[in-house]
Amino acid sequence: MLFLSLPALGRAITLLCSLTAVLSASAAPTAKPSPDANPLPDASSSSPGISPRAVPWVARHGLTSAQYQSTFNSLVSQGYKLTYVTGYTYNSDPRYAAIWEKSAPYAWVARHGMSSAQYQSAFDSYVAQGYRPRHVAGYAVGNTAQFAAIWDKSPAPGNGAWVARHGMTGAQYQAEFDKWVGQGLKLVHVSGYAEAGQAKYAALWERPSDGYAWVARHGMTSAQYQAAFNTYAGQGYRPVRVSGYVVGGVDYYAAIWDKAPSAGWVARHGLTSAQYQAEFDKWVGQGFKLTVVSGYTIGATGDRYAAIWSK
């Protein structure tokens, strides 16, 4: 297996667990074909869609905290599970983009709008109840960081080992990355965000149950991300995670690629809301499903999106 990393990875505050795990969905209050050719300002959607796999799914973006909670409650009551969420700001007010799908074989919980301390407390509580983290997104609100996260009771792959960290500087992230990859774990999720004007990272590693090669990069400018994207796509990799974040007015990207088989995929970044919506409509209309959406803010009102669609 191939493991690569670039600039600094990020302060380990969460904890290491070895779990294999399964309650009923909890509506927690909180909250290739084409490479990424020209970094289109990425799109987000406010349109529902039906997965090519016949699993109903819904995506929304640009939601205020209240709108997100209302949408969350409505969809969960209809049997949907939150599978992806990202936070960002618009006019200094938190906004959310998220994906739900109607497939929840394991108990799950989700929270948003948490401070670092609140996230840690929720993490400790849920892990003690047999949950494991499946997704975490850090995002800047003013000069501080907030978190949105999803936990569930699904069995962990491999031998059940997993690791979660947040609040890491670039150097701390790199050290954690090197440590856990050196012990045979795979990076499965990374979120970049700004806190007090500094890049920070939250990440999840798991013991892989397959032997597909993978690579990861972080701290990339838009041009660097596009160059890496082109290189890896040319080598047969597909993007499986992308996180856009802004530090000092500059947008950066952290991403993961792997060589798992795929029926087709499309990735875009740097999309305005309108561009994201257009891309969303285009690819969903061609039978693709939105699997990743990352919202971030350039300037006070410049919301941008990075996204991945797959078949």
Score class of each variant (00 low, 15 high):
178 D>E: 11
185 L>H: 03
58 V>W: 06
129 Q>F: 05
36 D>Q: 10
114 M>L: 15
136 V>P: 05
137 A>S: 15
65 S>C: 09
49 G>T: 11
33 P>K: 07
196 A>C: 05
15 L>S: 13
238 R>I: 00
130 G>D: 08
109 V>N: 14
157 P>N: 04
112 H>C: 13
244 G>N: 10
29 P>A: 04
40 L>N: 14
243 S>Q: 05
288 F>M: 08
270 G>A: 14
118 Q>V: 01
303 D>N: 15
279 E>F: 03
268 R>L: 03
122 A>C: 06
305 Y>R: 07
141 V>Y: 07
19 L>Q: 06
279 E>K: 12
2 L>F: 10
273 S>V: 06
170 G>N: 09
271 L>A: 13
283 W>K: 08
191 S>V: 06
128 A>Y: 02
47 S>R: 12
236 G>A: 05
248 G>K: 04
175 A>E: 12
279 E>S: 14
27 A>L: 07
30 T>K: 15
301 T>A: 12
181 V>L: 00
230 N>T: 07
20 T>E: 13
4 L>F: 07
236 G>Q: 03
309 W>Q: 01
135 H>N: 14
5 S>H: 10
244 G>S: 06
278 A>T: 15
271 L>G: 15
138 G>Y: 07
280 F>T: 07
66 A>V: 04
293 V>L: 01
94 P>F: 04
282 K>Y: 12
151 W>H: 11
6 L>M: 12
285 G>N: 04
292 V>L: 01
221 T>H: 05
96 Y>E: 06
47 S>C: 08
110 A>I: 11
5 S>L: 11
85 V>P: 12
140 A>D: 03
42 D>A: 13
231 T>C: 03
88 Y>V: 00
297 T>Y: 02
203 A>R: 00
50 I>G: 13
34 S>N: 08
48 P>V: 00
26 S>Q: 15
307 A>I: 02
4 L>P: 08
171 A>F: 09
35 P>S: 10
40 L>W: 08
204 L>F: 09
10 G>S: 09
60 R>Q: 12
138 G>I: 07
223 A>H: 01
87 G>K: 08
16 L>T: 10
27 A>T: 08
20 T>H: 12
190 V>A: 14
307 A>E: 03
278 A>K: 14
92 S>W: 12
199 A>H: 01
94 P>C: 06
171 A>S: 15
158 G>L: 02
235 Q>E: 05
168 M>L: 15
44 S>F: 09
194 A>S: 10
290 L>Y: 03
223 A>D: 10
261 P>I: 00
259 K>E: 02
265 W>T: 00
266 V>L: 00
257 W>P: 13
61 H>I: 01
281 D>S: 11
182 G>F: 03
140 A>V: 03
83 T>F: 07
63 L>W: 01
98 A>K: 11
59 A>M: 11
201 Y>R: 05
16 L>C: 09
147 F>W: 11
44 S>E: 00
238 R>L: 00
240 V>A: 01
199 A>R: 02
52 P>E: 09
179 K>L: 15
229 F>G: 00
227 A>H: 04
123 F>M: 12
46 S>Y: 11
101 E>D: 15
11 R>W: 10
251 D>G: 05
302 G>K: 05
270 G>M: 06
20 T>F: 09
26 S>E: 15
231 T>Q: 08
20 T>N: 03
162 W>I: 04
22 V>W: 11
2 L>G: 06
146 Q>C: 13
64 T>E: 09
188 V>P: 10
100 W>D: 02
61 H>N: 13
71 T>G: 02
83 T>Y: 13
26 S>P: 08
40 L>Y: 13
